[in-house]
């Protein structure tokens, strides 16, 4: 259950990043596109780790085989709106894991805590600003 929920959240984030990366004004901004592509790869690593099939280390595998289909939200059409949406999605994903982290066994809690921390880091990276 805990891992199913975590996997669904990652699948939702992957879908959001795919949509953002496909936007014309993101595609035209090579630095932004590279940043979003790198973060998307980290979510793919999260999904693989949650599934437990990452024994050979992180793999930026496409998770299109996952059948979870989160409710479609209105798709942003410009980079600024898309970024704001990604920041909120990362923050929500991180904070949404707290109850499961507190209830899970030690090993699962550690993995999910690291993933939540990574997502908070993504939000900070997207928001920018000095250290």
């Amino acid at each position: 259950m805990v891992r199913d929920r975590a996997l669904a959240a990652e699948t939702d984030l992957l879908t959001r990043y795919d949509a953002a990366i496909a936007l014309p004004d993101v595609a035209a901004d090579s630095a932004l596109k590279a940043r979003l592509t790198a973060i998307r790869a980290e979510h793919a690593s999260h999904a693989a780790a949650i599934k437990g099939d990452d024994k050979a280390g992180p793999t930026p595998a496409d998770s299109s085989s996952s059948s979870s289909s989160p409710s479609p939200s209105p798709s942003p059409t410009d980079a600024k709106t898309a970024l704001a949406g990604l920041v909120k999605a990362e923050q929500d994903a991180a904070s949404g894991r707290t109850a499961d982290i507190l209830a899970a066994d030690g090993g699962t809690a550690m993995l999910l805590a690291s993933i939540a921390a990574s997502e908070s880091g993504h939000a900070a990276l997207l928001l920018g600003g000095a250290a």
Binding site: S114, A124, L125
Partner: peptide, 12 residues
Amino acid sequence: VRWRGTSVAFPG
């Protein structure tokens, strides 16, 4: 992340 300027998938 702020010091490094990039993120990592599995902090800690």
